[in-house]
């Protein structure tokens, strides 16, 4: 008997069907071997597939959502799925079937359905009952930030030693204030002598 788990978010639901890995002493209600998954979006055709399709589709949605927010060109293309933005409110998804002579499925979803879908995938990623290769794209520190941190570190290393050197020089030289200037003393003596 196969286990079935559903994740719902408003107009989208994701169903995962599979078996526990008994060789790994897993519970009866766990799913580690996914045999089928179904993504239901209200008013849209049903999307279903095998485990090898789920990960690329999840990755595609995560990468696309990141591109969308980071002001980059919102376009994702792969062998299995293409996602591009038609405008600010509409996203065009082309799902290409792995079977020959099957026309690609074209879906148009709005921002609300896109966020529902992402949230369903988040629920799946966070579920302790399903063991899949976790998609860690949204949790990864963005490349730009990594660059920024490196730059900050380099900037710090570049300016800190000369700054310390200048400070110590000022401190050291300020101690000379307490000593008399020999040139001034000689001049004073010269001024006094003619009298």
């Amino acid at each position: 008997m196969q286990n079935k788990l559903s994740f719902h978010q408003s107009s989208v639901s994701l169903e995962i069907i599979g078996l526990p890995d008994y060789s790994n002493n897993e519970n009866k209600d766990q799913i580690s071997i996914i045999s089928q998954w179904k993504l239901t979006i209200i008013d849209k055709p049903l999307i279903e597939g095998k485990i090898e399709h789920l990960e690329p589709i999840m990755n595609a949605f995560y990468i696309y959502s990141n591109l969308l927010i980071k002001n980059k060109i919102p376009l994702f293309e792969s062998k299995l799925i293409d996602i591009k933005a038609d405008n600010l409110h509409e996203h065009n998804i082309v799902l290409k079937s792995s079977k020959p002579n099957v026309k690609p499925l074209i879906l148009k979803i709005g921002n609300s359905l896109l966020s529902d879908t992402i949230n369903c995938f988040d629920q799946l990623n966070e579920s302790p009952k399903v063991r899949i290769k976790k998609t860690d794209i949204p949790n990864r520190i963005p490349q730009k930030l990594k660059f920024g941190l490196n730059k900050k570190v380099k900037f710090f290393n570049f300016f800190f030693p000369p700054f310390i050197a200048i400070c110590s020089l000022i401190l050291f030289s300020s101690s000379f204030i307490y000593f008399g200037n020999p040139i001034e003393n000689i001049e004073k003596k010269e001024l006094i002598k003619p009298e």
Partner: peptide
């Protein structure tokens, strides 16, 4: 729209971390 989408993508348990990453890159 982008601000609302950012918030709507970060409702999961790891949403705080996601939001932080999005904001760092904004």
């Amino acid at each position: 729209i982008k601000s609302l989408l950012t918030l709507s993508f970060c409702i999961s348990n790891q949403g705080y971390q996601k939001l932080k990453n999005f904001l760092y890159d904004f």
